[in-house]
Design a protein around this nucleic acid. Sequence first.
DNA 1: CCCGTTCCCATGAGATTCCATGACACCCCG
DNA 2: CGGGGTGTCATGGAATCTCATGGGAACGGG
Lengths: 173, 173
Amino acid sequence: MSEAFRGEFNQKVDGKARVSIPAPFRRVLEAGDPAFDGSRPKFVLIYGRPGSDFVECYTIAQMKLLEAKIRRMPPGTPQRKALERNFITLSQLVEVDDDGRIVMPPKAREKLGLDADALKDGAEATFAGTLDTFQIWRRDAYEATLATEADADFDFLEDGADLLSLLPTDPEG
Amino acid sequence: MSEAFRGEFNQKVDGKARVSIPAPFRRVLEAGDPAFDGSRPKFVLIYGRPGSDFVECYTIAQMKLLEAKIRRMPPGTPQRKALERNFITLSQLVEVDDDGRIVMPPKAREKLGLDADALKDGAEATFAGTLDTFQIWRRDAYEATLATEADADFDFLEDGADLLSLLPTDPEG
DNA sequence: CCCGTTCCCATGAGATTCCATGACACCCCG
DNA sequence: CGGGGTGTCATGGAATCTCATGGGAACGGG
């Protein structure tokens, strides 16, 4: 199971809003697309979730799991509507082209703050893997946020405790 | 099954009440119309459900599922009547033309508040995908509602909790 | 014959496809 | 150990196509 998004990558965004998907991520997207036939894997890009500074990307398989969970919730409840809105309506299916790129959809550009000017000036995006999904950031926003949050990670810990102590205790160790 | 309505699209409504169906949605409508033969897919437009500010659109296939469920209900009960009225009587079969457009039926226009004046002034509609169906709104109404509801979404959440925590807890994670 | 539709064509903007290039990394063989 | 050679990747540019949208002609029913 190397089928996981891992690591960080910086990619240029050109004037037409095209970005290369990092090759290792492509491998995972291909594995996670049941309709993949050798080229052009698809995936789902989520631009909802106000408050966050990035867009989140799900493989087809992973999104189906999420959809199934949402469908199991009672229809019409505010909770379900909230999830539908943020993960279905505010999302978009995208296809990786034969050169390994996608065009950033307008809504995603908007969320990241990639306007026409930024594209002209040669914008850069950061791809950050988070196991089952990956995130796309504007590079500068990513670096600023990382600096802040890396500190916050340690707020949970007693002085001197190890990060791994946060893991659930589990018989298999 | 990438056959799902997903994302938001804005389209102009011209003086003759014509609107383009977003191309990605067209693909889904085609797939969901058993009689589709290369052009002019049909679908069902629902303008019942008073209180809602949009009309809802079902593929033929999806509507058949809904019909089957209604038929399984005991005839004559108020519950069944309510569903029949709102999803069958207050609905209409429409056909996408060769340019990818439909004419907004008068009943739908009425529900959305698209009168002759609004059409003259160049009205805009928003299409919002919700997996099995999609909704058509007047753009301004959509944006206003989205803004309101997006805030409401976070009322369910403890401070700092993630939207995904709304999912039912489930052994398979 | 008139009004409301439906059909057909035109057009520009935006999206997709295709080709080209340069930078690396890796491998095989001398 | 070195040196090509080969392949993958990221990236740029240009040709081509699709889509949304507007205008007008044809049509049909009352």
